[in-house]
Design a protein around this nucleic acid. Structure first.
Lengths: 139, 139
DNA sequence: CACACTATAACGATGCGTGAGAGTGG
DNA sequence: TCCACTCTCACGCATCGTTATAGTGT
């Protein structure tokens, strides 16, 4: 099998951080929350290929706004049954819900941006009326 | 002066919560953070018209993504000098910075939404290939 | 010896939620 | 007496950042 972990597959915490743009604290935190389970060499953590795959999924999940607890459960689903249909369906349902939430958030953000633009313009009008010159960096 | 506070101007915490859609805990928290300073009648808090104006600004600020600490400083600015030009200019600068951040956040959110849509579609393809029928509520 | 990297432990920040237990007024 | 409302602690949650302190290896 190709299941044995060759040494070059193992990365230290520092290498992982450089590769994924996170801090050691973050990786240790994910481990404490049982999202990652690196092997140990003495005290030191060594991250396998599987750890890397999981971390990638974790960071994806976070971009989508899932909580770490949500992500943990999703990862567990993937671990237990290899692509069982019921589990794919479940993940799908959660993803659709998240998408709805993100779209709602986007709508709110849009109106907030519009409102803030208005406020800024009115304050600029006030300042201009007082002869204040605004030197903003060109966009 | 019209500076005296007539009794009908005072609202209890419950009335404030109903009016602004927040919880008592939230109002007490804002008070602990020195964003609000209701008067007291014995133990009970009574919110003046000024409190309401401040709370409105606080909630606006939060929509714009300012931290409570940012908001506190901005409110203090407004309190100290009545519409001094330098303070308006300072607020303006912060607002422009916030707007930039919100626009950046919106861009990230957009790509995240697009990515999640892709993932959902591919999982739908997989499920469909397995003969799974997805019954989603019509939009 | 020095220097880089790693480890654990524990406190801090943010913005409240969620009780527990007690008082107050009608 | 009971109900509704209010009060003050004070711990909990999520997601790490930030020291402090101490190895470990080269």
């Amino acid at each position: 099998v190709t299941e044995d972990v060759s040494d070059d597959d193992l990365q230290t915490i520092g290498q992982m951080c450089a590769a994924f743009g996170v801090t050691p604290r973050t990786l240790r935190f994910y481990e404490a929350k049982e999202l990652l389970a690196p092997v140990r060499e003495g005290q030191k953590r060594l991250y396998t290929r599987r750890c890397r795959a999981r971390l990638k999924l974790i960071l994806q999940g976070k971009r989508f706004g899932f909580s770490l607890e949500d992500i943990r459960q999703l990862l567990d689903l993937y671990d237990i049954g290899d692509q069982q249909t019921t589990q794919l369906a479940r993940t799908h349902t959660l993803a659709v819900g998240r998408l709805r939430a993100m779209e709602a958030q986007r709508a709110e953000l849009d109106t907030a941006i519009a409102d803030l633009r208005e406020q800024i313009q009115s304050s600029e009008a006030t300042l201009a009326a007082r002869g204040v010159r605004l030197d903003e960096a060109a966009e």
